[in-house]
Structure formats: structure tokens, C-alpha cells
Design a binder for these strands. Structure first.
Lengths: 208, 208
DNA sequence: ACCTGAACACCGTTCAAGT
DNA sequence: ACCTGAACACCGTTCAAGT
């Protein structure tokens, strides 16, 4: 039995990332992590401080790994929408990142990679100054909020009141097509694009 | 010392609600709850099953306590915005409800009280069927998402990169007013209204 | 500088036993 | 029907002691 090579901070982070990828941050325990690494629990503390700062470091690392965002499309509005879509795709490809960032109050962080691109496009649309800042922030809240709700619905338990009950005749006001549409599962991708497009259209076309 | 009156399910829920109101769901422990109630921990299990279903019941109870939502305003668009604002206000007056609902994957639940009102207004705007459902859902995701992000930012730790650094000259593209606006704290109420108004405007005015 | 086991102060939950 | 204490299998973290 060769003695274990000395533990490094990077090694701890990588093992923690693997654990989180499988089971989510909730289920990352210091003891399980130590077992995976083949060390004593207490060694981990020497390298990363404690669980809190371990998760901090993990968020930082994962965000840094997200690639740059390249806008696509003919008009500034289209390009803003493409930034929003790209960011959504990035976040969805790291499902637990969203939870980690949310739990740690760092939603701001999730949006940083896209901000530079967004500022550029809003400027290209001729909007500047405080108004431009408002547009950037509106898109930020829209995208991050949507992803949070989306992720949330995915891990939702069976709807507690059945959908049909919710959309009975009085609520739907005799609009059968509406009742049917609301009872059906949401096409979140489509809803996302529709919403962002609508938001951006209004915000970019309104005069100062 | 009079013997304790028999414990009831309602009593447990009320004590749990008080604990959650102060410290949030994270900090509600069965043992603390038992201590507050002056009973053995295990008595609680007899009345509410376990921690999971206790929190379920708490969410149900709190949502039921939210009042009805009355739309205000002259046009359907204005009235939809007023529903969104009312819902946001309700959710913000129960700060921990948002966290509980989110943790339990029940964001749908948060929106139910407002849905009936919203359907009515969208119909009044002449939008029906599947398109109407899309508008309702777009507003739903917008409102719930915004509140989630907002709550999240409020309990955020100190911004890890200082705001000024983020908004240095290259990123802000020589737009000093933009840099200043993005460095300043967000007026979330204003941002919320601006966003919802923009979204609703586009969605209600676009022909089918 | 790095690792270790023992120990502390917590958890949620089960269960047999009481009345 | 309702309550209890003891016990189980977990946590994160600290600390003195090792090399």
C-alpha cells in the first residue's frame, strides 16, 4: 500500500465538484468528501477552511469555467435575445450551479459573464446612460429569474392540486383552449424566448 | 405545575410558523420546536409526520392566508401590472415563504392566488386561448422570478468583486453615466414595474 | 507544513414502553 | 389516542497530538 500523495486544495475542489455534479450541493458532506478522497475529514479543513468557503470556491471555479458569450443576430434586439439564450443554456448545462449560487445569495455572479456583451448591444441600439443600465438589469433579472423558476419546477413534486382542478370552468372563464393550454406542461424554452423578446422589444424601442 | 394541555396539530403549525418567521426555514429544527412547545421531540412526529410534511403544511397555510388580489387601473394592461405588483407585495410581506416555496419546488403555488384575476384581465384585453395562456405564464415567470432574484440579492454577502472594479472603463465602453448607474444599488421596485410594464405591453399589443 | 483520531455539540427519525 | 426517553445514524467543527 503506497502512502497517499499529499492532498491539494485543487484535488479537494475537484472531488467536491464531482460530488455536487451528481447529487447537488445539499448532499455534499465533509465526511463523504473525505471518504472519496481517502483522507481524514479534518485534512479537508486544513486545505479549504470549512464547508462554507469550500462551496464559495466551487461557485467561483464553475463560473470561471463558463465560456465567453458571443452575440448573434442582425439587429441589436436579436443580439440581446441571443445573449439571454446563451446565458440560459450555460446555466442549464450546470444544473447545480444555479442552486449553489442561489443558496449563497450570489445571483449577481451568474450574470457577470454576459454583462459586457449586453452593454455593447444596448449601446448599439442607441440607448446609453441610466436607461441603458436599466435595460441591462431588466434583462439580468429576467434571465436569472426565469432560470430559477424553471429549475424549481423541474424538481417539483407532483402538483398538489391536480392541474385539471385548478383550471376548472369558473377560473378559465369558458375559454376551453386556455384551460387546455394551462393544463399542459410548459414549453419553457419557447416561453423564455417569447418573454425576453417581448421585454427587449419594449425597452429598446421606447424613446428615453 | 399544571400538566400541559394536549398538543394539537394547529399548535405545532403555529409554533413552527413563529420560528420560521424569525429565523427562516433553514433554522427550524424539530428539537427547537419541541423546546418551544414544552413537549418531547417525538410528540411532534405523532402530529405532523416529519419535518418535510410539517413544512409542506406550513407553506399551504401561509399561501391560504394571502388575501385575494383586486386588479386596479383603467386599461387591461394597467390592471395586469397591478396584479403583478400586488402579488409581489404579498410575497414580500412573508419573506420566508418565498424561500420555503422555492426550496420545496412549489413556485407554481405562489402564483395561484393571482391567476384567476390575471386570466380575467387578459381576456378583457381580447386575448384568448393558447395565446392567453402564454401571457399568463409569461407574467407568472416574470413575477416569481423577479421576487426570487430580489430576495436573493437582499441576503447577499458583500459583493465579492467590488462594484467599481466590475464597471471599469472597458466594460462600460466610456459611458460614465452607465457605469455610475450600474454601480449604484438597484431600485428593485422601479425595475420590477418597468419590466412588467414592458413585457405586458408587447404581449398584449402584438396581434395573434 | 500537513495529517490524524477523539471529542463536542448538534441534527432527524424510529421504536418500544408508558398512560 | 397521545406522550415519553433512549437509541441510531448521521452532521460540521475544534483541538491536541503526531510526523
Amino acid at each position: 500500500m503506497a502512502a497517499r500523495a499529499p492532498l491539494t486544495r485543487e484535488e479537494v475542489l475537484t472531488a467536491a465538484a464531482a460530488l455536487v455534479r451528481q447529487d447537488g450541493p445539499q448532499r455534499l458532506t465533509m465526511r463523504k468528501l473525505a471518504a472519496d478522497l481517502g483522507t481524514a475529514v479534518t485534512s479537508i479543513y486544513w486545505h479549504v477552511g470549512n464547508r462554507e468557503s469550500l462551496l464559495d470556491a466551487l461557485v467561483e471555479r464553475t463560473v470561471a469555467e463558463l465560456g465567453e458569450i458571443r452575440p448573434r443576430g442582425a439587429t441589436p434586439a436579436e443580439r440581446v435575445v441571443s445573449v439571454a439564450r446563451a446565458l440560459r443554456r450555460q446555466l442549464r448545462s450546470h444544473p447545480h450551479l444555479v442552486a449553489m449560487v442561489h443558496e449563497r445569495g450570489l445571483t449577481e455572479r451568474m450574470f457577470l459573464p454576459a454583462q459586457r456583451a449586453l452593454v455593447h448591444e444596448v449601446h448599439a441600439a442607441g440607448v446609453r446612460g441610466a436607461r441603458a443600465a436599466e435595460v441591462v438589469r431588466a434583462v439580468q433579472f429576467q434571465v436569472v429569474g426565469h432560470v430559477l423558476v424553471e429549475r424549481n419546477r423541474e424538481r417539483a413534486p407532483a402538483q398538489s392540486p391536480a392541474e385539471e382542478e385548478l383550471w376548472d370552468t369558473p377560473t378559465a372563464e369558458d375559454d376551453r383552449a386556455l384551460a387546455r393550454a394551462l393544463a399542459a406542461p410548459v414549453d419553457t424554452e419557447r416561453l423564455f424566448v417569447t418573454s425576453v423578446r417581448a421585454l427587449v422589444k419594449s425597452l429598446l424601442e421606447t424613446g428615453s
